[in-house]
Each structure stands twice: as C-alpha cells, then as structure tokens.
Design a protein around this nucleic acid. Structure first.
Length: 270
DNA sequence: CTACGAACCTGCCTGC
DNA sequence: TGCAGGCAGGTTCGTA
C-alpha cells in the first residue's frame, strides 16, 4: 500500500482525531507482524497522552512523554479511525482506544508491517541509518550525483535505496524516472549533473503532487476516513504496460529489476 | 562493497 | 468450478 505520500496522507488524516488525547486501552489481537509487537506495549501506553504524530521515511512516530510508538504499514497495512460501534474484522490486528472515543485501528492482511516501541526513536536500528527526506533541503542534486559516481547499478535501484534517500517506492520511482526522461535500467554512473538535477526535481514534485492528491489508490489504499487517494489518475507509466504512452503513443513496457516491476516508455525515456 | 535470491504473508486475477 | 501460478504499494537477511 504505502509509499511516502500514502503514509503522509494517513498521518494527516489521523492527527486531528488523536493529538492530546489520552489512551484508554490497547487491544492486540495478533502480535505477529514483521517483528512481534512488544508484550509491554499495552501497559506502557495505558493512560499516556499522545503529544504528536510525525513521519520519518515511511514510518509513523506516535510521540509520548517517555517514548514513541513506531509504525510501519509494510505492503498492505492500513490505519483508520473508527468508533466503538465498529466491530473488528479479519486482519484488524490492533486497536488503540483513546479517551475521546476514537479508536486507531491497524489492519494488515500480509503482516509485513510493524508496531514497535522506542524511548529514543531516532536511534532505533530501523531509523538510525536512513538517508535524508526527499522533500527536505538535504536531498539535493549534488547528493544524488555524488552517490551515482562509479556505480554500475541501475538508477532506479539507487533512488529506491533508503540509505541515499527515503520514501521513494516502486510507484514513484517509476513515475519520477518517466518525468525525467530517464530509463530505469540506466547505469547510475552514466547520469550527468543535469540529469541528476532533473531527477531530484521530479522526485520532489511527484511526491508533492501525490500528497496533494491524497496518495495513490491502486487496489485498497484508503485515507484514514476510508476515502481513496486520487494520484493514480496522474500515473504515466506505473501499471500501464501494454497501454499507449499518454505523451507519444508508444507502448509502455514492463521489465523486472530487483524482483520488482519497472515500467517505462521506450521513446520518452531514451 | 555489489548483486541476487529468499524470506516474511494473504488475496486477487488469469489461464487452463 | 477448481486449482496452479503469478503478481502486489516494503524491507531485511543470507549467500556468493
């Protein structure tokens, strides 16, 4: 489900319901996610007030006085705000119940997601070695260009590496490369500085537009209120193999890189 | 270091 | 209808 825009959308959706609310109870129906949910989580959170919700990379951080809950949605995780009357369904693994009656509900059919606890989240092993945020000033053309030097790896592989820049998943990697007229298989070391500039620019603009559209709903992504995102209407290549390019009518191709699908227009991306 | 495959899991779609 | 196979928005880990 989620790349950076989807996680940002979820954050924006749940924030107004939960900020400054105290936790009444936590129900864990299945703790077997990517890593087990800590057994102490319920006791740790009981009665605590949620101070803030942040996003780092594709992680959501729920900040309390004494530490943070770290949530990752994996491939199929969903967070929604529901009320008491809403009975849990299949794959509704966790409910965090707040004093104002709101329930933050975690649903994740594939269970590739995670719910962790840390008293120093920035130092947590999952977050400590992450690269800059793509929408931050730290993510520059110079930064990307430097990391491309001498690398025979494909440029798509490079921009999806969270040590270089976080939050660029399969959809937005493909889309940004199309918008930069760069083929996904291009060896990173062959990019010139102008191309790196263009790519950084399109990564930022694509992510910003997607956030504005409430994310991309391919199958089942929903915002916290249950509504879909709308960025799928703006996709140029992702999932469009066999269809004519909307820019030049050439048939969009699909290839496999790193066990993920890549999509590109052979004419526009030369 | 890289690169590649496998692993974690369920559900949905396609083709026979 | 059923069943096998492929595919899915992510990340980590082990082996060459």
């Amino acid at each position: 489900m989620p790349e950076l825009p989807e996680v940002e959308t979820v954050k924006n959706g749940i924030q107004p319901h939960l900020i400054n609310q105290a936790i009444q109870s936590v129900t864990i129906r299945n703790k077997q996610l990517r890593w087990p949910i800590p057994d102490h989580l319920s006791n740790t959170l009981d009665g605590q007030t949620l101070n803030n919700i942040r996003r780092r990379s594709k992680y959501l951080l729920l900040d309390f006085n004494h530490g943070s809950v770290i949530i990752h949605l994996g491939m199929s995780g969903k967070l929604t705000i529901v009320n008491q009357k809403n009975t849990p369904k299949k794959h509704d693994h966790v409910d965090i119940v707040f004093d104002n009656g709101s329930i933050l509900r975690y649903n994740d059919p594939r269970r590739f997601g995670a719910i962790l606890w840390s008293t120093a989240p920035e130092q947590h092993p999952r977050l400590a070695n992450l690269g800059p945020e793509p929408l931050s000033r730290q993510f520059t053309a110079q930064h990307l260009y430097k990391h491309c030097q001498g690398k025979s790896a494909a440029i798509k592989t490079i921009i999806m590496n969270a040590k270089l820049v976080v939050g660029v998943g399969n959809i937005y990697a493909n889309e940004a490369l199309f918008r930069s007229h760069i083929r996904p298989i291009t060896a990173a070391k062959t990019l010139n500085l102008a191309q790196a500039q263009q790519l950084v620019k399109t990564i930022k603009s694509t992510l910003r537009q997607a956030i504005k559209a409430g994310g991309t709903t391919l199958k089942d992504f929903t915002q916290a209120d249950g509504n879909p995102g709308y960025f799928q209407q703006k996709l140029w290549v992702y999932g469009r193999d066999g269809e004519p390019c909307q820019n030049c009518q050439t048939t969009i191709q699909r290839i496999t890189q790193n066990q993920r699908s890549s999509f590109f227009c052979p004419t526009c991306q030369d």
